[in-house]
Design a protein around this nucleic acid. Structure first.
Lengths: 190, 190
DNA sequence: ACAATAACTGCACTGGTGGCAGAAATGGAA
DNA sequence: TTCCATTTCTGCCACCAGTGCAGTTATTGT
């Protein structure tokens, strides 16, 4: 029981994205979003930890989904390939979800305040990889291999998104796969 | 001519780091730093773009140094190896500079506000690699290979720093070289 | 009705950031 | 010495995100 919720994540995001598109992220105040949603400014903080978190949506669920994908990887797959495949699947979206997804990612990757804030979300995302890799390798989570894999996996995903935002007509999944091939060819020692 | 400067980057950083060490980054206000330095709060913004920029020091010079290192790479070296070597040299410090450097990096890598802000500095650092790689490959800076190399180079450096901060008695240069070897063994395709 | 519950919201405060105008210190010219 | 041009410093004001707190409101169940 108790008082029913006055709004929802979906409603807030819809109002917020409309304002962001109209006047930009930085120029949109929380007051403006609260007004558009029809709720007090203070209430927004009950749904999102900060203004910067709104474009990320309900990231906890997103993370859990990624963790599930990794956990469901066929064990016979090589470690890198398993992670690569999970990243690909994680970024497979129905075609009609593409335009809003482009907008969201464009906002996240091209707005300075969000570029900065996103580092915190990326760290959580990397940690999912690190834990999976450490478990499969039977080494601690602070060992070199899993740490490097976490960072490399993120490097792969971010690279793919940068390219995809330049040309959203391509499939992000294919860009990721291209990146995986390029990664495999890297030789850093003499 | 004109009025002489009331302080210096060195003086500000010294005062700031002392306060950060004493009470933590977040708990240190700009007023406190300004008081310690003996200047008005407003003046700090003439030396650093933001509070978050103080721990990074004079990053422009740092970037220029890294760019010089890359430019001085022997052309006969493979592309990845040249970048790897430049990253190693970039992080070679005299032994007596180590303790303050550890403190600086610990602050940058373990303070949430700075983890976020640092993404902006990392992006500039990556771009140096991207431009070097694109030039050597004769491709645009927004092509896959240089972009991926920028991200991978950063992944390498950040991984090394994470491990080094766990055990600063090691040489950061050696940790980076270990990372280069591990990177070279990654195979992401089936 | 009324109590219990859970959510909403206004208020006051802190701290970073930016614009602006005026004050202060310096070297050189008159 | 006095004055001027130049450069830097600084105080004031305003804005906005974020937080703690206390009081309000809407439901459900008794």
């Amino acid at each position: 029981m108790g008082r029913p919720e006055a709004t929802s994540h979906a409603a807030i995001e819809q109002a917020a994205f409309a304002l962001f598109a109209e006047r930009g992220f930085e120029a949109t105040t929380l007051d403006a979003i609260a007004d558009a949603v029809g709720v007090g400014r203070r209430t927004l903080f009950r749904y999102y930890r900060s203004k910067n978190d709104i474009p990320w949506g309900q990231f906890d669920q997103t993370l859990a989904h990624f963790r599930d994908l990794l956990a469901a990887s066929p064990p016979e797959l090589g470690l890198h390939e398993a992670i690569g495949r999970a990243i690909v699947e994680f970024n497979r979206f129905p075609a009609d979800a593409s335009p809003p997804h482009v907008e969201r990612m464009r906002l996240l990757l091209r707005t300075p305040a969000l570029q900065a804030h996103s580092a915190l979300r990326y760290a959580e995302w990397r940690e999912v990889i690190v834990e999976y890799a450490a478990a499969r390798l039977g080494v601690p989570v602070d060992a070199l291999e899993p740490r490097l894999l976490g960072h490399t996996g993120l490097a792969l995903a971010r690279t793919a998104y940068e390219l995809w935002l330049d040309d959203p007509s391509r499939e992000i999944t294919e860009v990721i796969e291209e990146g995986m091939a390029a990664l495999s060819g890297q030789n850093w020692i003499g």
